[in-house]
Amino acid sequence: MSRMNAVENMLASTGAAVISGLGDFGRFWSFGSRSISFVPVELMSLRGWRRLLPQCFQIGTRSVPVIMLTGMFIGIILVVQGYEQFDNAGLRDMLGGIVNISVASELGPVLAGVMLAGRVGGALTAELGTMNVTEQLVALRSMGADPIRFLVAPRFLACLLLAPILTCYADLVGALGAWAVFVFYYGGESEPYWRMTKQMVEFWHLNTGLLKALFFGGTIGLVSCYKGFHCKPGAQGVGEACTQAFVISFILILMLDFFLNVFLNGLYNLWYGFRSLI
């Protein structure tokens, strides 16, 4: 009898968790679609730009140092990790090309995204979560203002637009960091480093990286704002929401990276296969 009860309880709690998860998923999509629907309206109004620009400063300008630092160390670590293998195989000059492809198409956007999720995502969730628990969101609604339009749309838009720009910074500093270690630490030559980079890194690699960054930025913006809007009361509620926002953003960045890679590889094969025919 007690085993029966235990099974029933387990089924009930699993069912409750599934229902709650589906509900949360539905609410997130509804929240996301409403946020996205306000983007054109915000872009076409002066007030929208007034709300957007301070967010661009907070999310973009203030993230530049940390993103550049991240990018630089990605480049440096890749050279340190790869130098000996490439040198032993007599392919030392190709290292620049390989490292810069990795930075531009994969590690730059992913790690810049993760850094953005930590720095910006946490701050957005904490800010909106605090506004939520101190009734500021309800106050906005009571004044006839839509909190999603006023608070989420500019933040989402800033994340969406600035993630690719920040990734450019990460890529650039990553390439320079890798070059500095290659030349000044390992005694490599500059000319073959840049020549191979030019030969091997195509616009495709840069563009795929920036496209990924666009998706990552949008995801970070939406997840962070959603978690802030739906946090539990109290300081603990806001803290939990910040942690959840980062963890979910991180997982989604990796999942999106996988799906985008599969899609873009298919597209690459299709496009370059087609191009070789003409």
Partner: peptide, 23 residues
Amino acid sequence: SERALVPIRRQITFVFQLNALFD
């Protein structure tokens, strides 16, 4: 709906317990 409530909300103001001033 939320949208239809906007004109109503613009005739009523609310002093919240926690003041709800925008930081």
